[in-house]
Design a protein around this nucleic acid. Structure first.
Length: 415
DNA sequence: TCTGGGGTCCTAGGACCC
DNA sequence: TCTGGGGTCCTAGGACCC
């Protein structure tokens, strides 16, 4: 049996942990630049505010309803996430951390008649030790466990836990097919056209037809809905094959030097991610574009991939390559709104295709030294001078809560 | 008139997830 | 005025190899 533990309205719940006065009140969390609403407490969902809603379109509702709005505080969410995961790992030997707010558990060792108590106890321990409310779904496959979790959240009688076997025709007939893990907006539409509207109908669909219609994934989904496990727990974290760092700018940027400051910052951040997973990259791509939402301003998108002679994770190599790429795609006279870098050919450090025509470069220690200093003195304590140019590109974050758990200066004071 | 039978690698595009 | 930021996997088609 698999369990899926999912934190309820995770970011909104994190904000409440140190602000218990917000319990029972509407809470929303914004994306970078305070642009969109990306997390909503139940009260906000009940008000009809959709996921991803642009903030400026909902200003009136926010004011009228007294919604507490926060800028994204990723250090807080990351820290509370690892606390939740640690409680799960204390209780269960086999845990797959699936995302910042979800984990699959292997519950095959728990006797069937004790599963209910086990989940209820786990749920209350997570709440008590971390302040985060969770829901737990249990089922013979991961796909069903996801669905069970959905029921645990929606059904008031569930008490936050639900067990699902996949044979419950009546219940599965009452859930829309789009709720199934792996069935997104497009597939839902196509399935609806084919007359498949509910989870139960999908579970009864012909597997070969499904494979034809979509891909082998949909066949797996159907098998999983019927209780046949096709997806195992993934217990070791695979290194990323692609690393992307991109941001919308706080304000439009038109000067080359400011743009370069942003791009070099992103390249540096990408390098940190690369070194953290002990990888290097064979190329770095740079892209910039203007604001696609603007009707009046002229539009431009530019991108370029810079191959490296040797795979590298050296910050100066990455920064130089990124600047060089930017120089080629930059065009005077546009207002840029967003830029980023992408490392597309990421390899483990011991795998390297060397260049026939040049010697293998010396391994520099710069990256490691930078990482060590920034770990000790605070991120960005040491950085490239080129990144200190201009400030238009810096992110707007006007409503961020304190980093209660990761900064001495932000510790909550009890008077 | 008739034209084999295997393969691999790469890329773009589409779909999904959080 | 103001619209997020990451990721993965699959398939088809083109190009190449013997």
């Amino acid at each position: 049996m698999y369990g899926l533990v999912d934190c309820n309205n995770f970011y909104a719940s994190c904000e409440r942990v140190f602000r218990p006065d917000l319990e029972g009140k509407p809470v929303a969390v914004l994306s970078n630049n305070d642009g969109c609403i990306i997390a909503r407490s139940q009260e906000v969902k009940d008000l009809g505010v959709p996921m991803g809603a642009p903030m400026f379109k909902w200003k009136d509702t926010i004011e009228q309803q007294g919604i507490a709005v926060f800028s994204a505080n990723s250090s807080l969410y990351g820290d509370l996430s690892s606390r939740v995961m640690n409680v799960l790992k204390d209780n269960c030997p086999t845990v797959e951390v699936y995302s910042i707010d979800e984990a699959f558990l292997d519950l095959s060792l728990i006797p069937r008649d004790q599963l209910g108590d086990y989940c209820a106890q786990l749920k209350s321990q997570v709440r008590k030790w971390t302040g985060i409310p969770v829901s737990i779904g249990v089922a013979p496959t991961k796909t069903l466990a996801k669905l069970a979790n959905h029921i645990a959240k929606k059904n008031p009688k569930a008490n936050g836990c639900w067990l699902l076997m996949g044979t419950e025709q009546k219940r599965l007939s009452s859930i829309e097919v789009g709720e199934v893990w792996g069935v997104g907006r497009r597939l839902s539409k196509r399935l609806n056209i084919a007359g498949i509207n509910t989870v139960w109908q999908l579970s009864q669909m012909n597997k070969a037809l499904a494979r034809d219609m979509a891909s082998v994934n949909m066949e797996r989904t159907i098998r999983e809905l019927n209780g046949e496990p096709c997806l195992a727990l993934e217990l070791t974290q695979q290194p990323r094959q692609r690393i992307l760092v991109s941001r919308s700018f706080g304000h439009d940027v038109s000067s080359y030097n400011s743009l370069r400051a942003a791009i070099v910052t992103y390249a540096t951040r990408a390098g940190e991610k690369l070194r953290k997973q002990d990888s290097h990259t064979q190329s770095i791509s740079v892209f910039i574009h203007t604001n696609p939402f603007s009707d009046s301003a002229p539009q431009y998108k530019g991108s370029l991939e810079i191959p490296l002679d040797h795979p590298s994770n050296d910050p100066s190599v990455l920064a130089n390559a990124a600047s060089m790429g930017l120089k080629h795609i930059f065009k005077e006279g546009y207002s840029y709104k967003r830029g980023g870098v992408m490392l597309d050919q990421v390899l483990p450090k011991h795998v390297a295709q060397l260049c026939l025509f040049s010697a293998r470069p010396e391994q520099h220690k710069l990256g490691g030294v930078l990482d060590a200093i920034n770990a000790k003195m605070g991120s960005n304590a040491i950085r490239f001078a080129a990144t200190d140019v201009g400030s238009e590109w810096q992110m707007n974050q006007n409503r961020r809560s304190p980093r209660y758990t990761t900064r001495w200066s932000d510790l909550k004071v009890v008077a």
